[in-house]
Write a protein that binds this DNA or RNA. Sequence first.
DNA 1: GTACGTGCAAAGGTTTTGCATTACA
DNA 2: TGTAATGCAAAACCTTTGCACGTAC
Lengths: 143, 143
Amino acid sequence: MVKSTKVMNEHLQQRYRALGLKLTPQRLAILSYLEGNTRHPSADEVYRAVLGVFPTMSFATVYNILEALREKGFIAELSVDPVKKRFDADPAPHHHLVCLSCGKIEDVHQEIALPALRKHAGGFTVLRSQIAFYGHCPSCRAA
Amino acid sequence: MVKSTKVMNEHLQQRYRALGLKLTPQRLAILSYLEGNTRHPSADEVYRAVLGVFPTMSFATVYNILEALREKGFIAELSVDPVKKRFDADPAPHHHLVCLSCGKIEDVHQEIALPALRKHAGGFTVLRSQIAFYGHCPSCRAA
DNA sequence: GTACGTGCAAAGGTTTTGCATTACA
DNA sequence: TGTAATGCAAAACCTTTGCACGTAC
C-alpha cells in the first residue's frame, strides 16, 4: 500500500535534515506512507505497510523512526486506543471522532474554543487540549 | 494501601447485586480500593494494592473484576496513557488534566459546553465526549 | 446444588533493548 | 571517516485465555 513512486517534497526533506535527522530510505518510506495519511495507524500497521518496500524492515526500526518523528514534531502520538499506540500523521492540534464499534478514528478540524479551567486546574499549566468524541460511524450504525 | 476496615455502603452493595454480580471478598476489596480513589490506577496498581488483603489474588481476577465493573458502569476505562489501560473510579462524565512529565491524571468536573460538529462529523453519531488537557503539574513544573 | 468467580500458568500482543553491522553526510 | 541508523533476536510489559477448583447465592 506504499506509493513507492511518491517523492517527498523538497521542503519536507529540507525541514527534515535541518532537524539533524538522516534521510535514510527507510525513513523516506515511512514518511511517504504517513504523508496525508488520515488512518491513524498503529506501529504494526506502519510496519506491514512499509514491508512491501523494505522486506528487511524490522519493528525496532519502525519504532525508532516513529519515535524520532514524534520527538521532532512531524507526527503525533494518540492515546485513543487503550491497547496500543496510534500515530497521527498530522501534528497540528485537532480533535478526533472515535467509533466505539470498529475503532475507526476520524479527524475533526473544527476549531472549538474551550473556557479557562477554574479551580479544577489544580495548579496545572495547560499547554494543549484535545477532545475525543465517542460514538458510532455510519457503517457500524447500519450494522 | 487498602483500607481493609472500610465497608462498602449498603446502597452500593444492593446496586451491585441487582446487576447480577456476586459479591466476593475479592470484588469487595477492589471496590473498596476504588471507592473515592482519584488516582486513575492501572490494572497493575490495583493488583498490587489489593495484594495486601488477598495474597492469592491473581492478575486474571483483577482484569476479570475490572472488566465486569466497567461493563456494569461502576468504573470507566481511560485512554490517556498510550501504553496501558487506566481505570477511573468515577464513571460520571468528566474531563482530565494530564501531566506530560509524570503522567499524573487529575479530574476536571467543570461542565464544558461543546458546539455541535459541522460537516467534520462524517456521519458519526456522537454519544459522549471527553477533553484531555495536557500540561505540567505543579511539582513537575518546579523541577 | 448450580452457576459464576477465582487462581494458576501459559500464550498472545505490543513495545523496548543490546549489540553487531551498515550507510548517510 | 565518524556518527547515527538499521536489523535481528531476545526480553520486558500488558492483557487475555483455558481449565480445574472453589464459593456466593
